Amino acid sequence: MESKKIFVAGHKGMVGSAILRDLKKRGYKNILTADRQDLNLLDQRAVQKFFNDHQIDMVYLAAAKVGGIHANTIYPAEFIHENLLIQSNLIHAAHVSDIDRLLFLGSSCIYPKLAQQPMREDALLTGLLEPTNEPYAIAKIAGIKMCESYNRQYGRRYRSVMPTNLYGPNDNFHLENAHVLPALMRRLHEAKVNDVPSVTVWGTGRAMREFLHVDDMARASVFVMELDDETYAANTRPDLSHINVGTGKDCTIRELAESLVNVIGYEGRLEFDATKPDGTPRKLMDVSRISGMGWQPEIELEVGLRQTYRWFLENYTGLRGS
Rank of each mutant, 00 (worst) to 15 (best):
V47T: 06
W202Q: 09
R157N: 13
G321V: 04
I99M: 02
G294K: 11
Y167T: 10
L181T: 14
H95F: 09
A115S: 15
I6N: 08
T275G: 00
N172H: 02
L103G: 05
T204G: 11
D273N: 07
R269D: 09
P135H: 00
A137Q: 06
I74D: 09
N40H: 04
N235G: 11
F51C: 03
H242Q: 09
A137L: 05
G168W: 04
D250Y: 15
T308E: 00
A191R: 03
S149N: 12
E314W: 08
G106I: 00
D278L: 03
D22W: 04
V261R: 10
E78S: 14
R36G: 11
R306K: 14
R209I: 01
A18M: 07
V263R: 02
L125K: 12
P163N: 08
E176T: 12
I264P: 06
M293C: 12
G265V: 13
S17I: 01
I264V: 12
P112V: 10
R306D: 08
V201S: 09
N172K: 02
S88F: 03
W202Y: 15
D35E: 12
E148P: 08
V263P: 02
A142W: 09
G127F: 02
L114R: 14
A64W: 08
L23S: 04
L305W: 08
A139K: 06
L90Y: 08
G304E: 00
S160G: 01
N177T: 10
N89T: 06
V261M: 11
S288R: 15
A71P: 01
T126R: 15
L301P: 15
C251K: 07
Q117L: 09
R45W: 01
M185Q: 11
S88P: 01
D43S: 06
Y60V: 15
Y150F: 15
M285N: 11
A183F: 04
E121P: 11
E230R: 10
G10P: 12
I74Q: 15
P163D: 03
S198W: 05
L32P: 03
G268I: 13
D239K: 10
R26S: 09
L102F: 11
M58I: 14
Q307G: 02
R120S: 14
M225T: 10
I290K: 08
Y309S: 02
L305A: 07
V263A: 09
I253V: 12
G265T: 10
K12W: 00
K24Q: 13
T317G: 00
V180R: 01
A93I: 05
A183M: 11
Y316L: 14
Y150R: 06
I290H: 07
